[in-house]
């Protein structure tokens, strides 16, 4: 009973085929980003300028941060489409705390984050303890939370924020915008959690086979709850950045963000079937979409087409995901 580990005996053809499938599966998004970059740098002179690159990173940061949370929910074989509404409510609550109660900036930020985590907790509770399908639970929350935002504000923006908050959305450290730094920190943390801790390992296991994970003694509900609370918290963080950039809390903020965040995750190779995906992939997915949008702006393509293209990209990405799953 020896293991037949005969690398040398493998034909070139098989090895080549293996190589390409591995590339297709894991690194598809890298090639997509490179190709797009090359194409756009030919079409537009300003595309590859340092200024524009920093611009792309800053533009992508909010969606990219949300996509990390959405990533964890998708990997656990769920989804979170309430993130766009969470962006708005967290921002509004922070703005209200700062404006109405003249609270210190960090208190406002904590209040905003707490709102996001609480929404995530409710989502997680509905999904785990009440067994509501994630799509429906978070769709309901998407509507309810947006509604609450309008109720609180009467649909008027909250303005008059203290200057102290501006740094988060508009500040720079050297040449780097603060939102980009926040994004990098979030990705670094998420990478460690996803790849190097039991939390990540268990979330992947749950998404891959929930029953087997449960029967291994994993506290499935606890880890799913973690995924949804992370998603809510990171959406809130994005909402805080947005308020700070706009210098006001907008009840309409974040509409459609769930769409872009899910697209970023899926384009980056996160499988909607659960159990598969990588944090670097999600990052590249978010960058890919930002480049695409940036390129279209540089080329003066109307925003209606941008909207269309985003939809098409999402569908194409899911098609790839479905095809990958079909060959097993």
């Amino acid at each position: 009973m020896k293991s037949r580990n005969n690398e040398q005996q493998m034909s070139f053809r098989t090895r080549a085929a293996n190589f390409f499938t591995a590339v297709n599966k894991k690194y598809f998004i890298i090639y997509a980003v490179i190709t797009l970059t090359v194409v756009l740098s030919f079409l537009s002179d300003s595309f590859l300028s340092v200024h524009n690159i920093i611009n792309i990173l800053r533009q992508s940061s909010m969606i990219a941060i949300i996509a990390v949370g959405v990533f964890f929910t998708i990997v656990s074989a769920g989804i979170d489409i309430s993130v766009g509404s969470t962006v708005a409510l967290a921002g509004i609550i922070m703005a209200k705390v700062l404006v109405d109660y003249s609270a210190p900036v960090f208190v406002g930020v904590l209040a905003g984050l707490a709102v996001g985590v609480a929404i995530g907790f409710i989502n997680g509770y509905l999904v785990t303890k009440r067994r509501i399908p994630a799509f429906v639970a978070t769709l309901g929350m998407m509507g309810a939370v947006r509604g609450l935002t309008y109720v609180i504000t009467n649909a008027y923006p909250v303005s008059g924020l203290p200057k102290g908050i501006y740094f988060i959305g508009r500040g720079y450290v050297g040449p780097i915008p603060v939102p980009v730094i926040i994004m990098v920190v979030v990705y670094a943390g998420a990478y460690v959690i996803a790849e190097h801790t039991r939390i990540g390992r268990f979330i992947f296991a749950i998404g891959g086979n929930e029953e087997a994970s449960h029967l291994s003694g994993i506290k499935v509900d606890r880890y799913k709850l973690f995924a949804y609370m992370t998603s809510g918290g990171l959406a809130a963080l994005s909402g805080i950045i947005l308020v700070s950039r706009l210098a006001s809390g907008q009840p309409n903020a974040g509409i459609g963000y769930e769409f872009e965040a899910i697209t970023a995750a899926v384009v980056g190779g996160t499988s909607l079937y659960g159990g598969k995906g990588t944090i670097p992939g999600v990052f590249l997915g978010a960058i890919f979409i930002a480049i695409l949008l940036n390129g279209m702006v540089l080329l003066n393509i109307s925003s209606y087409y941008q909207q269309m293209l985003k939809g098409i990209v999402l569908i194409l990405a899911v098609m790839i995901d479905v095809a990958r799953n079909a060959d097993h």
Partner: peptide, 12 residues
């Protein structure tokens, strides 16, 4: 169904 996460490695 109950024993393995098929899409994960042996190590995992």
């Amino acid at each position: 169904n109950d024993g393995l996460v098929l899409g994960m490695t042996l190590r995992e």
